[in-house]
């Protein structure tokens, strides 16, 4: 199972940080997100991305996680040399993150 099978993602930007939400299609899958979509796994999946600091916020009432990746936009949208300066295409690259039911929330914490 891949992340895109159970969740959808939207990416935004603020200055030099990239933000994306990961939202369960079915709120019943939220515990799977909590267990499998962790900061270390996200950073390992986006191995080509340089990040100063990464934070995950949990929104159980919405069945969603919110990720903030500081320093991810090579200096910020307005001065970045990157083709996709906003990093709009970033969140979509998470959709093939493997979701393994053997992962447990306890392991993630």
């Amino acid at each position: 199972m891949l992340l895109g099978d159970i969740a959808h993602v939207r990416t935004g930007d603020k200055g030099d940080l990239s933000q994306f939400s990961v939202i369960a299609f079915d709120p019943a899958d939220y515990p799977r997100l909590l267990a499998a979509v962790t900061v270390p796994r996200v950073l390992a999946h986006l191995a080509g991305l340089r990040v100063r600091q990464a934070t995950r916020y949990a929104l159980p009432g919405l069945g969603a996680l919110n990720f903030v990746l500081e320093g991810a936009l090579s200096g910020g949208v307005t001065r970045s040399l990157a083709l996709d300066a906003h990093g709009k295409s970033l969140g979509a690259q998470l959709l093939d993150l493997p979701i393994d039911d053997a992962l447990r929330v306890e392991d993630a914490e």
Partner: peptide
């Protein structure tokens, strides 16, 4: 839900 969290840092 996607737009609620769009460009939000700490919700």
């Amino acid at each position: 839900k996607e737009q609620l969290l769009y460009e939000i840092l700490d919700p």
